[in-house]
Design a protein around this nucleic acid. Structure first.
Lengths: 156, 156
DNA sequence: TATGAAATATTTCGTTC
DNA sequence: GAACGAAATATTTCATA
């Protein structure tokens, strides 16, 4: 389904603020409320527009320690990895996790209460998995950017 | 501001689905709509609850290539870093960026159209900055988890 | 100071042109 | 795309604990 200029404009705005009323959104993108509503519904139905979520300050949740962890695995086959991935997905402290090309095999991001929790979580995730050779953690000192929006700008 | 059980419940739900009506939310957490709305507003005012955003499938935006990039800087002082950080923040392809402890100095995540755009963006970000010694990219093959929610669970 | 019921204001959304 | 109206929803008011 091709997205025209108006669709992209709607998506750009909704990615920054999904709390806008339909009327306000319509005015911002320069169309009528009814047309705007139809477009939003179409975008939802087609799956381009996923759910809408509230963003919470991690510090307010008592999780002000953020770690990026590179994980190095021994066997790269799918079967060996399954249990590990399952544990990642279940772990509340893990917010994001990816299989990556390059030196590490898996990269993940955790939001933690403190170093003690870091230790506990790492032990639970890596400690009893023979397939995990080693891991290296990069602790976040400052967040420069934390965008959930995907840019629709053409200028690359 | 201390968060009680009800606040945490509200936050947990809203982080997964902010599209719920206030009435539905109130029923889920077991309180009245008016009380529920007041709590949500209070959480908003106090900054615990940031904005609410729509999530868009990056692939639908034509950005199905995701890269995690480790950047190694020469001079670690703030002045040398300012221009670089400014460019990161302005760059539409960069979704997340952190200053980190450890070997690399900065870690960032990009959503890209293709390898050509990767090259263009890297050139723009790193190419003309004498302070950037080198960078290493890890390309995402599979996303295991992409949570925007911060867990309020106590079990660490 | 927080709550819930009820009244009011606003918005969404289907229908029509 | 515009205009209307019914239904759903958000928000305020107010009495109570």
């Amino acid at each position: 389904m091709p997205l025209d200029r108006l669709d992209r404009k709607i998506l750009s705005i909704l990615q920054l603020d999904a709390g806008l009323t339909n009327a306000a959104l319509a005015e911002k993108v320069g169309t009528s409320p009814s047309s705007c509503l139809r477009r939003v519904q179409r975008l939802r139905d087609s799956g381009v527009l996923r759910h809408t979520v509230a963003l919470v300050d991690p510090a307010a949740a008592g999780r002000s320690l953020t770690a990026l962890v590179e994980v190095f695995l021994d066997h790269h086959g799918v079967p060996q990895r399954q249990d590990f991935v399952r544990r990642l997905v279940q772990e509340p402290a893990v917010a994001q996790a990816w299989a990556v090309t390059g030196e590490p095999d898996v990269m993940l991001m955790m939001h933690l209460r403190d170093m003690q929790e870091y230790q506990v979580v790492c032990d639970r995730l890596f400690g009893h998995d023979a397939n995990v050779v080693r891991f290296r953690s990069l602790f976040v000192m400052e967040t420069y950017k934390a965008e959930t929006a995907v840019s629709f700008s053409e200028d690359s």
